[in-house]
């Protein structure tokens, strides 16, 4: 499967250009936020600035959309735009959104409604945005995509799930292109959960969305070929390998964040440049301009999935 376009939104900003620029510059400082007005406890986070989510043109059919949906719509729209491909009317595009936790801030808002106003007095708008597939729905209407759409969730495996299904849809001829990506958000309750469950000195929670426009392998790639496999199939070390994720990349820890690693790997291949600070580098790969880099292979955090990106 070939990557034809990338769209990404994170604490590093919006679009692959600002993403690349941030990778060049190296680590940024997280923001410290208070997640509870009662305990006044704080946590460092890599959050997406609300200003980045303002785009009247791209979000014109998204009046009611929450942050979760806006991030996904912007990243997916950017991936399509980045490809430069004009989709003909008879060409089907599929949409696959994957998310580790879904729009939980909106779910919590709905719980607020139940607690504050009673069961019979809750907002239907908030309820309808609390379903995981609200983002896919907004992507389809914002980009007028009428092909198949699906939303998958499997915590850290969400993105590899999406890639696998995208590959199947394209091979099967269900669609010519697939917009596949991830979206996950932060919320005060999630920040509390992260504070309890994560080793914050190593893993600073982040949020964001990354999408790819994918085509069949036979179409010339704007970026590179991408595949993911169970780790047993991948060779672990051939010198050009990059072994595994860094503990805390520039965009923070995001459960569905393997999409961000894939985006940076694709940009490294395209720009022929290895960026430091986001993946644990093998000692023999240095952070400098490299014409020889043709393949990047790395494990996800669980060491169960190997992502393999190749430029021809």
């Amino acid at each position: 499967m070939n990557i034809q376009g990338i769209g990404t939104i994170s604490t590093l900003g919006r679009g692959s250009e600002s993403f690349t620029k941030a990778l060049h510059q190296g680590p940024v400082e997280p923001k410290i936020v208070e997640y509870s007005p009662v305990t006044k406890k704080t946590i460092p986070v890599f959050s997406v600035d609300d200003k980045v989510l303002k785009d009247k043109e791209a979000l014109k059919s998204c009046r009611r959309a929450d942050r979760f949906c806006k991030m996904a719509v912007l990243a997916a729209g950017d991936a399509l735009k980045d490809s430069g491909i004009e989709i003909a009317e008879d060409e089907k595009i599929g949409v696959i959104v994957s998310t580790a936790f879904g729009p939980h801030q909106t779910t919590f808002n709905f719980l607020d409604n139940i607690l504050d106003y009673g069961e019979a007095n809750v907002s239907p708008t908030i309820f309808s945005h609390s379903v995981h597939n609200a983002a896919a729905s907004y992507i389809a209407s914002a980009l007028n995509i009428q092909g198949p759409a699906s939303t998958l969730t499997d915590f850290c495996f969400s993105f590899s799930n999406a890639l696998q299904l995208a590959d199947a849809w394209i091979n099967q001829g269900r669609c010519k292109y697939v917009l596949a990506g991830t979206v996950d958000e932060l919320s005060p309750a999630m920040e509390y959960i992260c504070d309890q469950k994560l080793n914050i000195s190593e893993l600073v929670p982040g949020e964001g969305s990354t999408f790819f426009l994918l085509s069949a392998g036979k179409r010339k790639a704007k970026y590179c070929d991408i595949e993911c496999n169970q780790s047993s199939k991948g060779k672990e070390d051939d010198g050009k390998n990059i072994s595994s994720f860094n503990n805390c990349p520039a965009w923070g820890w995001i459960a569905s964040g393997s999409s961000f690693y894939c985006a940076s790997a694709a940009l490294m291949l395209k720009n022929k440049h290895i960026y430091q600070n986001f993946i644990e580098l093998k000692k023999d790969v240095s952070a400098e301009h490299s014409d020889n880099i043709k393949n990047i292979r790395f494990f996800d955090k669980t060491k169960k999935i190997v992502f393999n990106l190749t430029i021809s």
């Binding site: 009611r64 007095n121 809750v122 907002s123 239907p124 708008t125 309808s128």
Partner: peptide, 9 residues
């Protein structure tokens, strides 16, 4: 239609 039910609330 979604606004309509929101107005009801």
């Amino acid at each position: 239609s979604l606004d309509a039910v929101e107005i009801v609330v």
